[in-house]
Computed example of a mutant assay.
Amino acid sequence: MAPHSDQPAQEADAAMDSETQRKPISTIVIFIAMHTEALPLVNRFKLQEEHDSLFPKGVPWVRYHGIYKDLHINIVQPGKDPVLGVDSVGTVCASLVTYATIQGLKPDLIINAGTAGGFKAKGAAIGDVFLASEVAFHDRRIPIPLFDLYGVGLRQAFSASNVLKDLNLKIGKLSTGDSLDMSPHDEASITANDATLKDMEGAAVAYVAELLKVPAIFLKAVTDIVDGDKPTAEEFVQNLTTVTAALDDSVAKVIDFISGKCLSEL
């Protein structure tokens, strides 16, 4: 991961320890915020829920684990809110779960997979699956020199150019905030981020992954068109099931591509 937009992804990847780059990928963590998004992959890879001490006692976080080909696959989720029973979406839970998982499992690679809003003005359509090139926040506005850049928190995803080419995915920039809707302030920030996609977790995962020096890639499937004519919440619910199937298929293809390879081959 690269801390600033003026550092090309290739430089960030080259800066990674060369031995790490050449080591076959063994342990993968897939962070997914919503149970509906995760369940098809859990079933596809025949993963089992792990009731271990990886996470602190009492938290609702969930881990599924299994072995597929030569890979240890872990799907982690923030789980259900203990009071309201809804999926624990958003940046706070994403940060905490990502941190705890990295500390416990020491993965070779993180994949943040999930659904997102897309902008038709940037070429997004319902069901498209994107590999994010960059991630940033759009709701941390701190109009003080340097703090403004910190608030945006622009980071480049791990350069997975071979994955992109081999699987024929779309590529675009991802902007993250803690609200499903888009205020005028958020819209201005998203435009400044030159984002094609809008989600609620990506930049938080990117922050922790960079902090702990774990490469991360971001796969996002478009459930709703943010600059379209339908209400975001309505369109999201309407398309969630079918778009999740597209996401599941793309993640599975990425896993197959990764098997037997090292980071430098992605």
Rank of each mutant, 00 (worst) to 15 (best):
M1C: 04
P3E: 01
S5R: 10
D6I: 08
Q7R: 10
Q7Y: 07
A9L: 00
E11H: 13
D13M: 12
A14V: 06
A14E: 07
A15K: 09
D17R: 05
K23W: 12
K23N: 10
S26R: 15
I28R: 12
I28Q: 11
I28N: 11
V29F: 02
F31N: 00
I32H: 07
E37I: 07
E37T: 04
A38G: 13
L39C: 12
L39W: 14
V42G: 09
R44C: 12
F45R: 12
K46P: 14
P56N: 10
K57S: 06
G58W: 04
V59L: 02
W61E: 01
R63W: 00
R63M: 09
I67K: 14
L71W: 08
L71Q: 05
Q77K: 09
P78K: 00
D81S: 03
L84W: 07
V89W: 06
V89A: 09
C93V: 12
C93H: 11
A94P: 11
A94R: 05
S95F: 08
T98H: 00
T101A: 06
T101P: 02
I102S: 04
I102F: 06
L105H: 04
G114P: 09
G114A: 11
A121Q: 11
D128R: 00
L131V: 06
L131R: 06
A132W: 01
H138D: 03
R140L: 13
P143T: 02
L146Q: 06
Y150W: 15
G151K: 03
G153M: 13
G153Y: 13
F158S: 06
S161M: 15
V163I: 15
L169A: 07
K170A: 11
K170L: 13
K170N: 13
G172C: 09
G172S: 05
S175G: 01
G177H: 09
G177R: 03
G177W: 04
S179N: 02
P184L: 06
H185R: 01
E187M: 01
E187V: 02
A188K: 10
T191D: 09
D194M: 08
A195D: 09
D199F: 01
A203K: 07
A204G: 08
A206L: 03
Y207G: 14
V208I: 14
K213N: 04
P215A: 00
I217F: 05
I217L: 11
F218N: 00
L219I: 14
D224R: 01
V226G: 04
D229K: 12
P231M: 13
T232E: 04
E235F: 01
N239Q: 00
A245N: 12
L247R: 14
I255V: 15
F257S: 13
I258D: 07
S259N: 10
C262H: 15
E265F: 12
L266C: 05
